[in-house]
Every structure is written in C-alpha cells, then in structure tokens.
Design a binder for these strands. Structure first.
Lengths: 199, 199, 199, 199
DNA sequence: TATGAATGAGTGTTCATTCAT
DNA sequence: GATGAATGAACACTCATTCAT
C-alpha cells in the first residue's frame, strides 16, 4: 500500500515529543513511564518505539527540542537591529518567560552531565554548543560595537546562560509557601551582569 | 546495659553516607540501587535501613551533608579578616575545588525541584537557606565596608551560587574529549561578577 | 485493529485464577509468592499484574470464585423439585465433596475476618451474603412447606454453613496418620441438625 | 552469679505469650513482626528467642495457650452439678464471651490445618483433642443421664465446637456497618442444637 | 540471661522493551 | 505502520534469625 498522501511521520513524532515534554516537565525521568507518555500522546506504547530508539532517546530528544526553542528565541532576538545590550536584556526576559513554562526541564538541561549512552549525549552537547553560539553571536556583536567589554563571546554566553537559572529557581514553591522570599527580577539580574557589584 | 560501650551509630551512618555520596556522584538517583550503596559501604542492605528511613532519606541526607560542607567552607572563609572581596574570591576558589570532587551531586543540589515527600525536602530547602545566609554574611560585610554596591546580600549570594555552576560545567568530559573548549577560570568569573561586562 | 481476533482476557484470567486456587489451597497466603502462582499458570510474573491489581486482589478473587462454585451447587440443588429436606441433605453432601478438593481454601473462607483493604473485602462479604441467601432460599421453601420449623432462613443457613466446616475438619492428616479418628458422616451431621440431640 | 531468688522463666515466657496473643489477635500471622511482639512485651527481640524456638513456635504456643483457656472453661463448667444440658448451655455462653475477646485467634484455631513443621502442629492437634475430650465429658454425662440422645461424645463435642464459630462470625464489622444483620444468640443456637429444625 | 545491631534471603511490584497480530 | 499483551530483570523494603557483647 502506498503511503497515504500527506502522511508525515514527523507529525506523530512531534506529538509524542510534546507529550513527553509535558510529562517530563512534571516529574523526574524515572517517574515517567513510557506508557504514560504514550497515553498522553494518544498512541500505544509500541508506537513510541517506532519513533524513538528507547527511553533515553526520548529524553534527550526532549531536551534538544527545548534547547532548539531557546535557540529560536536567541535568533529571533538577534534579527532586531537593537543595540546588543537591549538584545541581551530582551533575551533574558524571553528566556525568563520560557522558564515559567518549562522550569523543571530547563533545570534538567543545566544539570545534565553524566550520560550512560555516549551517542545521545553527544548530540545533546552539540545542541548546547549551538545555543551558546547563538547567544554568543549577540554578545560578540556587542563587543564589536564596543558596547561590551571584549571578553570571548562563548565565555560570556556561558555565564549568561548560568544566570538564567537564577530565574528558574525563583518562585519555586515548597509545601504551600515560597521558600525563597527574594524575587530577583530580570532587570536586577541584568544590571548586575552589566555593571558588576564592585563599588 | 543497652548500648554497647563505645558503639557509635554516627560513625556507621557516616560510613554509609560517604558511600552514598560516592555512588550518587557517579550516576543518577534512579541508577543507584541501595544494594550498591550498602556493598560499597561494606554493610548489608538491611543495615542501611537501620540508619535511614528509605532511599529518599539517603538522598536528601547526602545533599544536606554536602551543603553542610559548603557552608563550612563559607564560614571558614569568613573567619579571615581579609577584605570581603578577597573573601568572596577565596570562597569561589574553594567551591571550585570542592566541585572538582562532587560535580554531579553539586549540580543536583542546584537542580533539585520536585520532591515526592515534603518533610525531607523541607529540611533540604532550609539547609539551602543556611548556605545562602552564610554566603550572604560575607557579602553584607563587604556592602557595609563599601567594598560592594549595596544590593541585598541574599540576592547577590543567590547569584554568586549560580555562578559556581559555571565552574561545575567546565571540564565535563564527554566521550574522551572535553566538549567545551573554553575554560572559565574562577579569576575570570570573579572579575566579571565584580566589574560587569558593560563598557 | 485493537483487540486481536479471538483474544479473550477472561480465559487467561481464569487460568491464573485456577493456578492461584491450587497454590493457595496448599499453603498459607503469605507462603504463596506471586511468582509461584504465575509459573504454575504458565505465565510470567508481570502478566499476573495485567489481570489482577495486586496480591490481595488475587486472593479475594480466588475466594469469591470459590464461593461462586458453592452458590452454583446450592442453586442447582434448589432446581430439583425434591422436598426441602432432601435438598438440604443433597446440598450437604455436595458441599462435602467440594470440600474434599478445596479444604484449605474453604476454611479460609470461613475464617476471613480482618481485611487491610476495604473494597476487596466488601466484595467478598457481599458474595458470602449471596451464598447465605442461596442456602436460605432452600430452607425457606422448607419452612413454607412446614417441613422445617419456622426459624429465619438466614439464621439456619448460617448455622448450616458452619456445620459444613465440621466436614472440612474431618480426615485432616497430620504427619502420616489421621489425628481425629472419628468420622462424622454427612448423614449423621444432617440427622443431628434435623432432630437435635435432646432426648 | 546465682539465679536471682524467685526468678522464674515461666513468668517472662508468659509475658511474651500474652503480648503475642494481643498482637496476633489483631492481624494476620504474617503481619505480626516478632519485633512488635517483643516491644509490646517490653523485652528485646533477641529475648523472644530465648523462650521460643522461632516464630511458628510462638504462634502455636499462643493457640495452645488459648485452647487451654477454653479447656479451663469447660472443666469449670463440668464441676457444677447442674444437669448436662444446663452445663452445655453455660459452656456455650462462656465460650461466646471468650470469643468476644479473642475472636480472630479463635477463628484461627478452627482454621489451622496445614503446618509446615510437624512437631509444633502435632502438639497443637493433641491440645485440640484435649478440648474435644473436655467438652465430650460434659456431653457424655448427659448421655448417661439420658438427657441427651446417645451419640458418641466426641462427635457431638466436635459439632458443638463448630457451632461456636457461628458466634464468632457474628458482629464482624466491615467498613462501618455490620455486614450480617442477623444476630444469632447463644440461646437460639442452643435451642436448635437441642431440638433440631425439623418439624 | 538479655540485648539489639547486623544480616541477607525473600517478595511484591514496576516498567522498559519486544513481537505476534 | 500500529497495537498492547507478554515478559522478566530490577529494585525497594521487610523481617526472621543470629551472635558479639
């Protein structure tokens, strides 16, 4: 039988991926049975294995998918012809919003370190590299335009990314009350990143 | 009669804890069977349950134990009567060394977000609070002495802690080669934190 | 698509149930690992959990299944248009035979008292109620026809059921010799139930 | 060191036994850890093993202890020089009261059938035999005095004992309501045993 | 005699993965 | 391709029993 006209395996793959993103954003990896991801995607368990090699593959695909979204944000920000400083602040704000939705997974990205299976992890790290590059591009344009001090773009991008996790740790509720009373606004964070804390 | 002369439960508890620290620093929580932790500590599985309520209890005890070590570092640094700035830099260096040994677990600390059991997690968060306080103390003394700009100590401590994870992400080897070529030294990181990046 | 043609979950469920009946009839509940029940049924341990929620579910399902068999006996006996007295005797005989095969489980039925999980136990007790009703029906027809004294059917059914356990305790072998030399035949038991022992 | 004057191992044994009776009357055998029995008796776990060979030994000792109490009841009743019928009724009443306290264990006695270890079970069955004998004695005196029909005492005693379990099954609460509405009083039960149900 | 820390076999349950349909 | 029944390895946790003190 010929393929159904217009049938696209990518669509179903994405459906499963989106389901996985939801589930994995709620709980730890080991608390997310494939079956739950499948049901949530409206497909059978076996179907998941037609699109992903195994559970880890799903996991890293989710992370990569998420990083892609952040890369998109960075690239969109860069298209503006605002000053680099403004772009960077905009980026921080948008990532901050992004984190509101994907906090748990976002922190997973930052945390992921030791992979059982090399291949998957390599792809993941290459993707992280891409993200750093995308942020780096904004920064380096700022360096070029003398808006920013001339540190290597990659270095600053790495630090910038690290700062975003400050945002992610805000507003985490424990029990029924926030545990950290302080709210570090993107504005404040950005100011400190720009000006430092030394008098 | 009851307690055997010289028997000390804390010693064995610590032995198990140290074993758990080793194992949990190597792999994810769900990949660390209690049995492995026990064997590694030189005791039987059942013995672990004499000292810890369950696996989660071990996990959070490990994290708390680790945070305690960092708190110790911070408190020791503070005892010097060096300028706050120097203290802060010293702290960054020492945490950097600390991370060399406990990288994976250290990142777990930063990442820990969704706890199944409230009680354990509350204790964990209180401990994180203590750590922030300890770092904050150093910073506030710097603010008082006009070495640092007058931001709230807790805010800066939170950001400072976040920066340490930049260190943790350095030098992560994937496969047989570093994935990130850049090396962000504590010196560089500190300079940026102090002076900002804006020209 | 979904269900394979001819696949019938009831058949496999029953297969597992029958296996469980065999095993549980031989030893105490806590001495019957799920794994043994599974192997005996020719399936894997995991398969058991596709058909039963947990071990208790198996246990109560077994008991209910067994009571159903006794209810069937009672209902079949009632279909005869023999006098109630004859029916009652027939019932005693048939239950007596039934007990030969399911002695241990039959005594479990009588003994079951303290349930950890309400739901399962409720179903079990409802089933016991059904059995009492079925026996009661025979007795009440006898009361109506003035064959029997006019006690409430449920009362007499309860007592009747209790008498059957006299049968169950017969012929229990301990070591290699019967422990109770006496044999109380269904005939004798029935006679006493009918006529009493008072002179 | 000499034995402490008046120290009696039987006293401690009995203390443990009483504790075990309490615990085992509440839950199933397999749900009663030795440790709980020990704590409840105010001794250490190890101590239990100085007085009992293993858990089964405790269990059968408990049952035997309980049967002894019923034997005592029977023997006390027999000492009266009431008519056998009155004695039998008295016995039923007293056992009924006894059951109020030891219902769960009492039903265990009736149910116990398949023992893993021969020796312990033999002792148990011999004790059951004693009980039957004690009840039998009352009955046979009644037979001799022509109060009762001349069935073998053992047979009637066995049936009599079986009837007591009707009492035990009364008033069992399931959820929050009695499951069996009927209350079969000792009086009614006795009347039926005496006179039968045939018209 | 008494203790209770230590043991490790045992078991209920979960869940990633496979494969016949 | 899609399904979901079947599998069985894996693992947390319990608890009877032992034994050094």
């Amino acid at each position: 039988m010929a393929k159904i006209k217009g049938w696209n395996p990518e669509i179903k793959r994405q459906k499963i991926l989106n389901s996985a993103i939801q589930i994995l954003n709620r709980k730890e990896y080991y608390q997310c049975p494939i079956d739950e991801i499948a049901k949530n995607a409206g497909v059978a368990k076996g179907t998941v294995y037609l699109y992903f090699k195994n559970k880890e593959d799903i996991y890293f695909s989710v992370l990569i998918n998420l990083i892609d979204k952040v890369i998109d944000i960075a690239e969109n920000v860069q298209k503006n012809d605002l000053p680099a400083k403004k772009q960077l602040f905009l980026l921080l704000q948008r990532i901050s919003n992004f984190i509101d939705t994907y906090r748990h997974l976002f922190l997973s990205i930052r945390q992921e370190v030791k992979p059982p299976k090399e291949k998957l992890h390599d792809a993941f790290h290459r993707k992280i590299g891409e993200l750093i590059k995308a942020i780096s591009a904004i920064i380096e344009s700022g360096v070029k335009k003398k808006e920013l001090k001339s540190y290597p773009g990659i270095v600053l991008a790495t630090i910038f990314l690290s700062l975003t996790s400050v945002i992610a740790h805000q507003k985490i509720e424990v029990g029924k009350h926030k545990i950290q009373q302080i709210d570090i606004s993107p504005e404040l964070l950005f100011k400190i990143f720009m000006e430092g804390i030394e008098r």
